[in-house]
Structures are given as structure tokens and as C-alpha cells.
């Protein structure tokens, strides 16, 4: 009964989006009260940029989560992308298409390795994608000997630092990606297969759904979106950021979970992710404004995740006793 109601609430009832929505409102109000400067134009633009960057990967993470997986290799793929672009172009915009193609191929390969470990070898997704994260990180270090040479072409700066109608380009990219994902998840056979696979992989498989392909497609989609996010990030910083490939970037996961996408698969939709991304982006920038150190920022993010999952556990259980 409990899981049942939870499932319904997550997918059909507005109750599933109520919590992240009220959380967002709460943080926005709190920011207004404590930090008057929060609503300055430049600061809001920073929030929108953060949302765009996190959002692109969070959509990929959502797809993987819906298929009952988890993708910890997102940060490594982003880092690899910037390194590929820097080394292959060395700032030469003419070589950019070839470098992007290479990064996309690398992304597909990494997604395929994740999928292969999970689908063919039955490795738990957490372990598989973490191992791939470490592997890619190691490969970057070995390849560059710790020194990623090269420059980011100016062309990419439009993607990372540009603005359209006053709004940072990354947010537009995120909006596009989210819209496409929302349609695919809700309105296509592929989306239905993903939900079925995530909700009950055994039943889905025995119903003739090629669950392996569905899961693999999810990991590859996530890796490709991480490549896109890597391009945005490179365009934003304008330089190779070795730090990036080394950090286990969990913002995508945090956003999806805060928004209400279930870690247990099959529950949640892009609306949740968008809310989670908005909440996380506001939170991150607000924490910066408050001058919280990295530790404080992480602690607040962690608390938000815990609160979100705790509220989700509780809500349906209370309603489920009828």
C-alpha cells in the first residue's frame, strides 16, 4: 500500500512537486530576508547559470535514476570533455567540431562501459559508475601527466558565458534538454519502457521489454549530457579546470533527489528535476553570498537531500494507512 501510494503520488499527484516547490519558495524568501543583495540582476544571472549547468547533467541523472541506476561518473565525463577540447583545439576554433565529435564519442564509450558493467556483468550501478569515475580520472591524469595543455576556443564561450535575451545561454540549453526529456519520458514508447524497467525490471523483462537496452540508453544519454555540460563548463571558465575532473560532482544527483526523483527507480519526472535544480542553484548561490565555506555548502546540500528524502518517506506512509 505504501509503495503504491508513493508511486502514484510521485507520478500523478501534484503532491509530489509540492515539497520541492515549497522548499524553493522558502529558500527564496529566506534569501530575500537575510541577503538583500540576492535579487540583484547580476546575482540572479548567476543563479540561472548555475541552474543551467547543473540542470543539463541532472536531466541525464534523472533518466538513469528512473531506470533504477545511478551515475557517479558525470563529473569525470565533464572533466574529460574539457581536457579533450583543450588538447585537441588548443584554442583553435576551427578544430572545435572535431574535438566535440571526439568528446561525444568518448561520452558514448563511457556510457557504454557503465551500461556494460551494469547490464552484462550485473555490477551494482553505484560501484560500476564510481569505478568508471576513478578510471576516467586516472586516464586523464595519465594522459596529461597531470598537466592538461591547451586552450579553450573562444567559440565555446558563447555556450558557457553568453546570454540570450539577458538570460545565460546554459539555462536555455537546460530548458531545451529538459523539454525534450519531458516529452520523451511522458509521450513516447521509450519513456514508458524506461518507467516500466525502473519500477520492476523483472516484470518488464518478462513482458518482453529489452531492459538491457533501455538501461544502456539511459547511461549513454547521461554521459552525452555530461559531455554537453562539460562544453558549457569549459566555455564558462575559458580554461581547462583540472579540479573539475577530480571532483565527484554530485550536484546532478542532489538536484534530482531534492526534486523528488526516487533513488529506487521508476518514480519521478522532469518537473521534479527542474524544481530540484532550481532549488539547488538558489541554495548554492545563496550559500556563496552568505560566505559559507565549502564545508558549510556541502552540509546544507546534504541536509536538503536528507530532508527531501525524509519528507518523501513520511508523506505517503501517513496517507497509506487507509
Amino acid at each position: 500500500m505504501t509503495t503504491l501510494t508513493a508511486g502514484r503520488a510521485a507520478r500523478f499527484a501534484p503532491a509530489g512537486t509540492l515539497m520541492p516547490l515549497s522548499g524553493l519558495a522558502l529558500v527564496l524568501v529566506a534569501a530575500a530576508v537575510w541577503t538583500p543583495g540576492f535579487y540583484s540582476e547580476a546575482n540572479l544571472r548567476l543563479v540561472l547559470f548555475q541552474a543551467g549547468l547543473i540542470g543539463v547533467t541532472a536531466v541525464g541523472q534523472t533518466v538513469v535514476l528512473l531506470g533504477r541506476g545511478i551515475d557517479l561518473s558525470v563529473g569525470a565525463v565533464m572533466g574529460l570533455t574539457t581536457v579533450i577540447v583543450a588538447t585537441q583545439t588548443d584554442g583553435d576554433g576551427g578544430k572545435l567540431p572535431a574535438a566535440i565529435l571526439l568528446a561525444v564519442l568518448a561520452g558514448i564509450a563511457i556510457g557504454a562501459v557503465n551500461a556494460g558493467l551494469v547490464v552484462l556483468r550485473g555490477v551494482p550501478p553505484f560501484v560500476a559508475t564510481f569505478a568508471v569515475f576513478v578510471l576516467v580520472q586516472g586516464a586523464i591524469t595519465a594522459w596529461t601527466r597531470g598537466a592538461a595543455a591547451g586552450d579553450i576556443p573562444h567559440g565555446l564561450q558563447t555556450l558557457g558565458s553568453g546570454r540570450v535575451l539577458g538570460v545565460p545561454t546554459p539555462l536555455w540549453v537546460f530548458a531545451g534538454v529538459a523539454a525534450v526529456a519531458a516529452v520523451v519520458l511522458a509521450r513516447t514508447g521509450a519513456g514508458r519502457r524506461l518507467y516500466a524497467t525502473g519500477s520492476n525490471p523483472r516484470a518488464a523483462r518478462l513482458s518482453g521489454i529489452r531492459t538491457g537496452r533501455v538501461i544502456a540508453a539511459g547511461y549513454i544519454a547521461s554521459a552525452l549530457l555530461a559531455v554537453l555540460a562539460g562544453l558549457i563548463s569549459a566555455g564558462y571558465a575559458g580554461h581547462v579546470d583540472a579540479q573539475l575532473s577530480r571532483s565527484l560532482d554530485l550536484n546532478s544527483l542532489a538536484a534530482a533527489v531534492i526534486g523528488g526523483v526516487a533513488l529506487t527507480g521508476g518514480k519521478g519526472h522532469i518537473g521534479h528535476t527542474v524544481l530540484g535544480v532550481a532549488l539547488l542553484a538558489v541554495l548554492i548561490v545563496w550559500m556563496l553570498q552568505l560566505g559559507a565555506g565549502t564545508g558549510g555548502q556541502l552540509a546544507v546540500q546534504g541536509a536538503a537531500i536528507l530532508l527531501a528524502t525524509w519528507l518523501r518517506q513520511r508523506g505517503p506512509a501517513a496517507a497509506g494507512t487507509r
Binding site: 509503495t3 514508447g189 514508458r192 516500466a196 520492476n200 523483472r202 516484470a203 521508476g266
Partner: peptide, 23 residues
């Protein structure tokens, strides 16, 4: 556990093995 995806609505389970036919 093997026949149905209990979280999905009945319409989705009815077409679970023939998603292609309704898509």
C-alpha cells in the same frame, strides 16, 4: 513481481508487452 509493474496504472500494464503497437 514478474507479471506486472504494480506502480504503473492498469492501462500501462495492459499494453506493457505491446508498447510498440500503441506508439
Amino acid at each position: 513481481t514478474e507479471g506486472l509493474v504494480l506502480d504503473l496504472p492498469v492501462r500501462a500494464n495492459t499494453t506493457l508487452s505491446s508498447i510498440g503497437a500503441v506508439s
